[in-house]
Design a protein around this nucleic acid. Structure first.
Length: 261
DNA sequence: ATGGTTGTTGTACAA
C-alpha cells in the first residue's frame, strides 16, 4: 500500500499538476493539504476518473485537507479533537482497507508565524492536541500513520541554510520539542529512518521566492510518522523531488511510504 | 539586501 502526502497549494489551481502526478506515481492513498476550497468546490471528477474515492474537509480560501484512496475508506473523522472552538480545517483521519486495515491521519499543522504571537500559541496548542490524538491512536495497536505538512524543521540538517530560520516559527525550539515529544512517545520518522546519518537534507519544500529551488535552498517539513505496527510493515519510502521542477509546481513535493498492507 | 512568489479573495492575507 503506497501512501503519500502532498501539500498541493490550491487544488483547483493545480488540478492538472495533481492528476499528472497521480497517473505517474500511482499511490494507493494520498492525503492532501492546502486544498483552499470548500468541499463543494473540490474538483472531484478528474480524480475520481483515476479510480480514487475522495473524502474532503475543506474551508473557504485557506487550509483544507482531503484523503484520496483507490481502496475503500471507512470511519472518517474530520477535525482534530481537543478544541471545539477550532474552526480551521487541518485534520482528517480514516481507515483504509487493503490486505489489512491501516488508520491514516492527514494533517496540516499551523505555520505559526509570526512568532511570538497568537498564531504561534495556536501552533503549539495544536501540537499538544496532536500528541494526545497520536497517543490515543498508538494505544489501539493498529498499523497507523500520521502524515502531512507538519510545518516543523526537526533539526538543523533539515534545512539547507538553518541560520536563516532561527527566527521562524518552523524552527523554534518549542516547535521542534513538541514534534520530538511525539516521536519519543513511540513514533518513527519514516524519511529519516531511510538515511539516519545524512549530514544535510533531504528536503520536501522550496520557497517560490529568491530562486530557492534553483539554489536547492530547501527544508524538510512534510513528514510521515509510523506507529510501531506500521514500522513492521515498512517496505520503502521516497520523496518525489522531480515534481518541483515541472510546470506550475506546488512549493511542496509528494512524500510517500510503501507498506506491506 | 527586509528583497522575492503564489492562490484566493477582494483590492489584503496567509504562506
Amino acid at each position: 500500500m503506497k501512501i503519500a502526502t502532498f501539500n498541493i497549494n490550491g487544488v483547483r489551481a493545480r488540478i492538472e499538476t495533481l492528476t499528472g502526478w497521480l497517473s505517474e506515481a500511482q499511490p494507493d492513498v494520498v492525503v492532501l493539504q492546502e486544498i483552499k476550497t470548500q468541499d463543494e468546490g473540490f474538483p472531484a471528477d478528474p480524480i475520481a476518473d483515476l479510480g480514487y474515492n475522495i473524502e474532503t474537509h475543506g474551508q473557504k480560501g485557506f487550509n483544507g485537507v482531503a484523503i484520496l484512496s483507490k481502496l475503500p475508506i471507512e470511519d472518517v473523522m474530520r477535525g482534530l479533537p481537543g478544541d471545539d472552538a477550532d474552526e480551521q480545517s487541518r485534520y482528517i483521519e480514516a481507515t483504509v482497507v487493503g490486505q489489512r486495515a491501516v488508520r491514516i491521519g492527514g494533517l496540516y499543522l499551523p505555520n505559526g508565524n509570526p512568532q511570538p504571537g497568537p498564531k504561534f500559541d495556536y501552533k503549539l496548542a495544536w501540537m499538544k492536541r496532536l500528541r494526545a490524538r497520536a497517543s490515543h491512536l498508538r494505544m489501539q495497536e493498529m498499523p497507523t500513520i500520521l502524515l502531512g505538512d507538519y510545518n516543523v524543521i526537526p533539526e538543523p540538517r533539515d534545512a539547507a541554510a538553518p541560520d536563516k530560520w532561527v527566527d521562524d516559527a518552523l524552527f523554534q525550539p518549542e516547535s521542534r520539542a513538541a514534534l520530538r515529544r511525539i516521536l519519543n512517545d513511540g513514533w518513527t520518522d519514516a524519511i529519516r529512518l531511510r538515511d539516519p546519518d545524512n549530514a544535510r537534507g533531504p528536503f520536501t519544500f522550496w520557497d517560490y521566492q529568491a530562486g530557492a529551488w534553483q539554489r536547492d535552498n530547501g527544508i524538510r517539513i512534510d513528514h510521515i510518522l509510523l506507529s510501531p505496527q506500521a514500522v513492521d510493515l515498512l517496505i520503502d519510502t521516497g520523496i518525489d523531488r522531480d515534481e518541483r521542477a515541472k510546470d506550475k509546481p506546488s512549493d511542496h513535493v509528494p512524500v510517500w511510504v510503501d507498506l506491506d498492507a
